[in-house]
């Protein structure tokens, strides 16, 4: 397997903000890669640098071995980007938009592939509709279609499901999964962690322009493996101090992280001893959201220790 995307010590500063502070990543061909992080972590800046929309202050980026600055023509031909903003050209219909986009990539007579994309994204009925008359979800589909007109081996989706209904989300993922199975490398940024968990084989987490976690999704989940016991106490009972320090308060529940199921009994015994009456109780498996919060929390700790 070759390297689809090589990012080497990339730095980018916008005025006072260090958007990227030395990011290095290697994404192999055929991967389904997730790029996660809170708002302002640098995900979109990193994608912009990869796509040539921004120029890094230091470091280099390459798509399938082609440097995005020195060899930008080859790099851009191999890359398809779905931008985060819902943008469109109001002068043209869906089909015109896709034909024009094909031409920009040097492809003429692309109608067979355009028809296939339209069918897969459920846009056939809208092919001759002007862009400005489409709903937000439909415009989002056209953005995806535009990124695919030149059959790029590397596809970047920047928040493709933000504000999109469930049906399109399912259809979109089905299509993107198929493209990935067919050998396309997919890089995804999303705020929906359950999407990343079910789709991505490997995940990088960014915070303040740095990679704070990089591992396979399975390893990340294993690292924070365990369960959480959440419970609500019947009033007026309050949680004794020695128990309260073990838990975090979430939406009126006390959440106790557990290393194993065995700890449940100990915890319940202690609660009984303290005279607490449990109103509601649930046991949950940790998911990517817990991993994410854990990683971001740890990153904050280590950064404050640095100072």
């Amino acid at each position: 397997m070759g390297v689809a995307v090589a990012i080497d010590r990339v730095e980018k500063r916008f005025a006072a903000v260090q958007a990227l502070a030395g990011v290095s990543l290697r994404i192999d061909e055929g991967e389904f890669f997730g790029l996660l992080g809170p708002n302002g972590a640098g995900k979109t800046t990193l994608i912009s640098c990869l796509a040539g929309l921004s120029r890094p202050d230091a470091g280099s980026l390459a798509v399938l071995g082609h440097d995005v600055v020195r060899d930008y023509r080859a790099a851009r031909r191999l890359l398809g980007v779905v931008p985060q903003e819902l943008v469109f050209d109001p002068f043209f219909s869906v089909r015109e938009t896709l034909r024009i986009q094909s031409g920009y990539f040097g492809i003429r007579n692309n109608d067979d592939w355009i028809d296939e994309i339209l069918a897969n994204l459920d846009l056939v009925a809208k092919a001759d509709t002007n862009m400005r008359r489409l709903s937000g979800g439909m415009k989002r589909r056209v953005l995806v279609a535009q990124a695919l007109v030149h059959k790029p081996p590397v596809i970047v989706l920047d928040e493709p499901t933000a504000g999109v209904d469930v049906e399109l989300r399912q259809g979109l993922w089905q299509f993107v999964r198929r493209l990935n199975r067919d050998g396309h490398t997919v890089i995804l940024t999303t705020h929906y962690l359950e999407e990343a968990e079910s789709l991505c084989g490997r995940i990088a987490m960014l915070k303040q322009g740095r990679v704070v976690a990089l591992d396979s999704t399975a390893n990340l989940l294993a690292r924070f493996a365990g369960q959480t016991l959440s419970l609500r106490l019947a009033p007026p009972a309050a949680l004794p101090r020695h128990l309260a320090v073990q838990a975090t308060r979430v939406d009126g529940y006390w959440a106790f992280p557990l290393a194993g199921a065995r700890e449940v009994e100990r915890l319940l015994a202690e609660l009984r001893q303290a005279g607490c009456v449990i109103d509601e109780l649930r046991l949950t498996q940790s998911d990517l959201e817990d991993v994410f919060l854990g990683v971001m929390h740890n990153a904050a700790d280590s950064q404050s220790n640095d100072r």
């Binding site: 040539g52 023509r73 890359l79 469109f88 050209d89 986009q101 920009y104």
Partner: peptide, 17 residues
């Protein structure tokens, strides 16, 4: 227009010199 609406990305992403 394309800058204000953001559609300028469509001509910035392709390999046009």
């Amino acid at each position: 227009q394309s800058k204000v609406t953001g559609s300028v990305v469509f001509v910035l992403l392709p390999p046009i010199s």
